[in-house]
């Protein structure tokens, strides 16, 4: 059978162009593979290969975390610490209760969305609601800011007719509850150090019932 004419660049599969003659020394570097080309995989075969590869990887990564007790411990530690960081500096809801902030916050069942990036009174203005550590015990409270450092505030309750005033000392704020009758606040324990302020209240909500953004009444005017 006479050879059919072919252009040279099609011939590599049958007779590679660079294959040396049988009796000459073999070349050190081979540019083309001698292996026969693998036939293309069927889709089902590919999927099977992919799934085995993934299960293998999952198995090894599971053993990576669980195989060594120290590694599992380190992972748990990192996870907890990261969660702590988020809880400490993020925005989180907290349940609030008590009659001191009536009628802004109901006696029970309300939640406050607290922005903890406002800790230590960063960016807090007069009229905002803040969460703070109560200076005379170990609990936390929620009150309205009526004075920041250098402001002038009334020490007495307005309705009593008292006229004693002070200037809020540096690094402190003046916190008063909205329900003057039932609030234990700066009238009792004096100016609160800003170091005890934990965050600013963004919203008050009752799950599945109501949601209300807290507006600063002083900024609207």
């Amino acid at each position: 059978m006479p050879p059919r004419f072919r252009p040279s660049f099609f011939t590599s599969s049958t007779r590679p162009l660079l294959t040396p003659k049988p009796n000459s020394t073999p070349l050190q570097i081979r540019l083309t593979s001698n292996k026969p080309p693998t036939p293309p995989l069927l889709l089902s075969q590919r999927l099977h290969a992919l799934s085995t590869r993934l299960t293998n990887r999952a198995r090894t990564s599971a053993s990576h975390f669980l195989g060594h007790p120290l590694r599992a411990l380190a992972f748990a530690l990192k996870f907890l610490a990261f969660g702590h960081l988020l809880m400490e500096y993020g925005i989180w809801p907290r349940a609030v209760a008590g009659p001191s902030m009536l009628p802004t916050i109901a006696v029970a069942g309300s939640w406050a969305l607290i922005d903890f990036t406002h800790r230590f009174g960063r960016g807090v203005q007069v009229g905002d609601l803040v969460a703070y550590h109560i200076p005379i015990n170990t609990q936390s409270g929620l009150k309205r800011v009526l004075g920041m450092p250098g402001d002038y505030v009334l020490v007495d309750t307005p309705e009593t007719g008292g006229e004693t005033m002070i200037q809020v000392p540096p690094g402190h704020c003046w916190l008063i509850g909205d329900n003057l009758d039932a609030s234990r606040d700066s009238r009792l324990f004096g100016p609160v150090p800003l170091g005890l302020v934990r965050g600013k209240i963004l919203a008050i909500f009752q799950p599945f019932r109501s949601f209300e953004w807290v507006k600063n009444p002083m900024l609207a005017q």
Binding site: F120, G121, P169, G171, P193, L194, G195
Partner: peptide
């Protein structure tokens, strides 16, 4: 905050500047 005693040396945020 717990078990504070007279004589202890403590680290705290300044009341004047947090």
């Amino acid at each position: 905050h717990r078990n504070l005693e007279r004589g202890m040396i403590v680290v705290f945020r300044s009341p004047e500047n947090p």
